[in-house]
């Protein structure tokens, strides 16, 4: 089983998990990573040409390009496919159970549709569309992990932390967070279904109940490469968004079980297969122009 994973910094937890431990994947993973703000690649036929800012972890991989036919499945990790979209919407529009006089009431269906609209505009989905135009092999969406539960109690020493706190504060109440997270999952599944892909929600036992358990919090903001001088990567204060290899290991367990199913099938399982050409226009070269985020 050969897997190619595309993603941004959130992919590093998975990469480190595989490199640090004996994976039962029974195969290899090539990681093609890039910061979301610089993410650009072109998909033409079987060939994926990563942009200049890409870092590739080669596992039995040759050449600067990625050939889709070399792989059995594709992972799309992070790339702004995250729960944050729901949190942003919830600042002003809320389900009636949670609304106060300061909020517009929104129906469950409208909330899900809003989240779906935002997810559909992410780099992750754009990439999946491009891949799906060229291959009917399994594609998995792996979301950026939800923020660490530390966000609830951390000292807000920077503007960025204050902004993050305000954004996520709306979901601090477990009852509210769970409800909105369910909407996010349904929207994410719908987006994936439209592309004949599969959404892998964050493992439930890594959440408390919505934010990521502190034990999976990364100590240092991950980078794709160590500093050129070999010095340790300096800690980034208050990184509550990235997860550690322990978390990556949990995600890999999820992936392994699905890939096992896929590999046992004679061909691509129907759930992952695109039965006909998709009614979307392929942009052979694609340069998303999203504003920079913390990735």
């Amino acid at each position: 089983m050969k897997v190619c994973a595309f993603g941004n910094s959130y992919m590093i937890a998975i990469k480190d998990a595989i490199e640090d431990s004996d994976s039962s994947l029974n195969g290899s993973v090539t990681f093609a990573g890039c910061y979301a703000g610089s993410f650009s690649l072109s998909v033409a036929g079987d060939v994926v040409k990563p942009g200049p800012r890409f870092h590739l972890s080669f596992a039995e991989h040759k050449g600067p390009d990625i050939l889709l036919s070399d792989y059995d499945a594709f992972l799309i990790v992070g790339l702004r496919f995250n729960f944050q979209h729901a949190a942003k919407i919830y600042a002003k529009h809320r389900l009636w159970q949670h609304a106060t006089a300061d909020h517009y009431i929104i129906s469950e269906k409208a909330l899900e549709s809003s989240i779906k609209d935002q997810l559909s505009l992410t780099i992750a989905v754009d990439l999946a569309r491009s891949l799906r135009q060229q291959t009917d092999k399994p594609i998995f969406f792996i979301p950026q992990p939800n923020p660490s539960e530390a966000i609830k109690s951390m000292r807000l020493t920077t503007e960025q932390l204050k902004e993050l706190y305000e954004r996520w504060q709306v979901l601090f109440e477990d009852e509210v967070g769970i409800e909105v997270y369910r909407s996010f999952v349904r929207a994410a599944e719908a987006v994936a279904d439209d592309l004949f892909a599969k959404f892998l929600p964050q493992p439930a036992d890594t959440m408390t109940p919505v934010f990521t358990d502190n034990s999976y919090r990364v100590e240092f903001k991950p980078k794709f490469e160590p500093n050129p001088d070999g010095a340790a990567v300096p800690p980034r204060e208050g990184d509550i968004l990235h997860a550690n290899p322990l978390f990556g290991h949990r995600v890999m367990k999820q992936i392994e079980s699905l890939l096992t199913v896929a590999s046992r099938a004679e061909s691509t399982p129907p759930a992952f297969r695109a039965p006909r050409p998709l009614p979307i226009t392929l942009s052979s070269t694609w340069h998303p122009s999203f504003p920079e985020d913390v990735s």
Partner: peptide
């Protein structure tokens, strides 16, 4: 009764 900013015009 504005829509969420996240919502596309079509939705």
């Amino acid at each position: 009764e504005p829509p969420p900013k996240a919502m596309t015009e079509e939705t």
